[in-house]
Nucleic acid binder design. Structure first.
Lengths: 214, 214
DNA sequence: GGATAATTTGACCGGTTGGTAAACATTACA
DNA sequence: TGTAATGTTTACCAACCGGTCAAATTATCC
């Protein structure tokens, strides 16, 4: 007797792991562009190269696919902030945080857009994670920044808005990619734009935060 | 004999103007959250307080509503950049540009999100406007900034990425509003967050661009 | 107040959507 | 190799979707 849904089994087979990977990959393509409501299971199934019922054998509902995707993205998305080190010096920490975030915008733009889509809709599926783990992590790093300001290593400033400004400026290159390309035009829209952005942003933040350049 | 569609008449009646306004207002509510594909005509009609066929009497298709909305938003959205004055001094121009953009994020968050939704989807309805009028305007203002840098009024930097960074940091407070509120927490998420943001961002950009404070 | 134009409604249509049921095919494993 | 568990497909359903139509209602203006 077949178990109704693969998800209910305890041990996952080889095929399950492979197919779930393919489905999530396809779902990332579609969700990141069309958002949750704008995405259809048929679209995902087509990109994944399987029939809709077959896809629904691995994920019971559209919500289940979306949730699995969000969970995975949320974790890796905060990696750079976790790496932000209290013991490092402000200049190198800020610089490498900006660089890491820009690399993610370049290498994982779909993940960024999936997240942005969720925010635009008012975070109906992740509001708890924002108020919980995310806020806790930001609070912790904000304390580090506040300490830097207190000891005169950087100019006094609101650490939360500082973090927001790094998030927004870097993710902009993933989320608003079309606009960036359109405005830069043919000649400057090559992959070099990420290096230009890194140079500009590092300068802006290092000088803007009153960090002595070493 | 009634003219099939109100849109075809030359002169618009009082009722037409009022109803079209109500419809666009309702459509802004729904489109800005759910995106184009994720929005249904029924949703808009319900928010607008009228039946679907009645709504379709004023706008023939879903695309027509969306287009009318985008056209209107695009124009007003660029108002602050147009006001950016070549003859002003860098500090006051940058400061007031930031302030104006932040005010728009605070007062017209739905417009910002509508635009962001369109960008995330790859700008299928406005790519021409981006490559044309928007790029032209940005090119013009970038030249102003370049001149400031050439005469030593501000630090040399890429003017395009400078504009991107002002756009992204300010619009962030509209587009990622849920996240901002969640991270700031109950105590700091009041309306004061816009003033905190203004203070922080003005400092960041004035110092980051090497502008002498007056 | 009546003719005429503008507006509103309910019923409807073909196509799409999320999801199911059951038959069929394949794999893993004793 | 047989068989039970896993995986896949076809056919299908009820609800929803964008949009039409004709009839009914309301506003306008002489």
């Amino acid at each position: 007797m077949a178990i109704p849904r693969a998800a209910k089994t305890q041990r996952r087979t080889r095929i399950q792991e492979e197919k779930e990977e393919i489905i999530l990959e396809a779902a990332l393509d579609v969700f990141s562009v069309n958002g949750f409501r704008g995405t259809t299971i048929d679209q995902i199934a087509e990109v994944a190269g399987m029939s809709k019922p077959n896809l629904l054998y691995y994920f019971r509902t559209k919500e289940a696919i979306h949730r699995a995707l969000i969970d995975r993205v949320l974790f890796t998305w905060l990696e750079p902030l976790r790496a932000f080190d209290a013991n490092g010096n402000p200049e190198s920490e800020i610089r490498s945080y900006i660089r890491r975030k820009l690399e993610m915008a370049r290498d994982f733009p779909r993940e960024s857009r999936l997240f942005a889509n969720e925010m635009l809709q008012g975070a109906p599926h992740v509001e708890d994670e924002l108020r919980g783990p995310l806020k806790a992590l930001v609070d912790e790093k904000a304390e580090v920044i506040r300490a830097w300001a207190a000891t005169g290593k950087i100019t006094k400033c609101d650490p939360y808005h500082l973090i927001f400004s790094i998030w927004s400026t870097t993710q902009h290159y993933a989320d608003f990619d079309v606009q960036v390309r359109a405005v830069l035009g043919q000649e400057h829209a090559g992959e070099g734009r990420f290096e230009d952005a890194a140079r500009y942003l590092e300068q802006l933040f290092v000088d803007g935060l009153g960090i002595r350049r070493s």
